[in-house]
Design a protein around this nucleic acid. Sequence first.
DNA 1: TCTATATAGTTGTAAATTGCAACTAATTAA
DNA 2: TTAATTAGTTGCAATTTACAACTATATAGA
Lengths: 218, 218
Amino acid sequence: MGQGIITTVDVVLFTLKEGRLQVVLVRRERDPYKGQLALPGGYIHADGDIDSQSAARRVLGDKTGLVSPYLEQLFTFSGGARDPRGWSVSITYYALVSIDVLMSQDKARSTLLRVDDLPQLPFDHNRIIDFAVDRLRSKSTYSALPCHLLPEVFTLTELQQTYERVLGYKLDKSAFRRKINDLDFLEAVDEIRTGVHRPARLYRIKPARNLVLFDRTI
Amino acid sequence: MGQGIITTVDVVLFTLKEGRLQVVLVRRERDPYKGQLALPGGYIHADGDIDSQSAARRVLGDKTGLVSPYLEQLFTFSGGARDPRGWSVSITYYALVSIDVLMSQDKARSTLLRVDDLPQLPFDHNRIIDFAVDRLRSKSTYSALPCHLLPEVFTLTELQQTYERVLGYKLDKSAFRRKINDLDFLEAVDEIRTGVHRPARLYRIKPARNLVLFDRTI
DNA sequence: TCTATATAGTTGTAAATTGCAACTAATTAA
DNA sequence: TTAATTAGTTGCAATTTACAACTATATAGA
């Protein structure tokens, strides 16, 4: 059984560094495109992987050392033209991680590049990244998704800046706080972020809470 | 090359009949589950299919006779447990068609069942349909998607009823019309739908228009 | 021809939400 | 003490949405 179709997973891992949305690329260890920067990806292992999500987690862990970032299926790219080895399917995922966690878990094999300034990449990886950026931006307009680009605890100002950096435009402070408050997916932690000015309340995502979606009305 | 992974496409084809959202099922022609009702689906042909979207179109045409319904990728289901033949990938699509077009193009091999009253189906097809219904409902709250469940031309009242039947709740007439008007994706046609009461203006989707999305603001 | 009725389509306004700007609060540095 | 800077709140105008009543146009039947 099987039709000689190459079946892979690829992961677009986002992080926010220096105020810019960046994507993690790794050097390919084998042909095709050996030595070039590309998305972390690999074959699905029919023995071993439970499903493609597990495969994506495994591949991401192997290539970047990340343990359990936010991970969600993006889209499946397929066809005879996208891989020189033959007709292929790539089940793609996107993942979010804070730069702190990335720095502490990644074993320095990966490269960070700004999503708005990418070189030409192998396969259809530019297209996949563009698709992931579009998804991230659009989903950020109606969900708590950008939270996962921050560390465990963060201030509301940091959260707003994260939204602004992902979306590429400024948000109103009071409206933003009202919205976050209404959605009720954050809880204050005891600590306070102290710095050179007025200290800020710290928050974290309420435990056992799925990704919160904002209401839409037609 | 290839890892012995079964690679298929499955399509959830929706239509609206008797005011109910229904899904098209076909009898399986071969094992496993030969003779049972299931989603129209089949192997990807690495020779012949351009990509999985083409494969989905081909399969849908072969099994239901439909030529070019609205078709969009849904999700990719995968794993070792979902198909008795082995580790498998199903790239799933959902499609929308008006009952008129379905009746005229389908060669009567297919069965229509209400999505809220399905029997147990083979593989993970119940899960796939549930997933498709969720997607259709949620996307209908912020897009022109339900248009594709109607014939070429329709009245605004018919369009509103279509939204209401998909979403499962009533909408306000004036607000609905304002929204549709603002989005500007319909154009009036010359004809008028005449009936037993006041005649209604007929509309169609403006040509060369992508699926219109409503604005969302965080 | 007149009237009742049913559906199409519009209008007015109250209620809710959002956008904007100014305000208060708390800290450090000088 | 004061200036500066960031945190966080408040008030209100502007906009959007929800709701209900209104007008318009057809058929059917008396």
